[in-house]
Amino acid sequence: MAAGPTVKKIMDTYQGKIRLVIKNYPYQYRDYSHIAAEASLAARDQGKYWEMHDLLLKRSPKLDRESLIGYAKELGLDTKKFAASIDGKKHAQEIERDKKLATDMDLYNTPTIFINGRKVVGERPFEYFKKIIDEELKNDKKY
């Protein structure tokens, strides 16, 4: 799971002051978690990571192979290259690296969010994040 609309609102509200970094932590026992992560990175190879990221969050849990290829087509990607990438698990190593990082950090839930290193586990309302972000901005001399 992900904090889709909340993160989107944060990025809109604090545009220019905040940077978002995504780590994949696909759950082992969900059918499409891994292939969806592969799809996001396959889209990245074609310069459309964020478009795919947003689309996956919007259409989740409809994330089977055929649906993913449909999304790639919708975004104007080269679907042949895209399909080869997800079928060949081209980004497995990168995904495993993120998973190892997550387990090394004892994370057990998605979404888990770090705001300048401060941990927020699970879904929280926008106001919860806003309070932390405003504190961080206040502590930063630039603003």
Binding site: M1, G16, K17, R19, S60, F114, I115, N116, E136
Partner: peptide, 12 residues
């Protein structure tokens, strides 16, 4: 950026 937000997510 003054604030970096790292999200560990699962699309499903």
């Amino acid at each position: 950026a003054a604030v970096t937000l790292v999200e560990f997510l699962d699309f499903q």
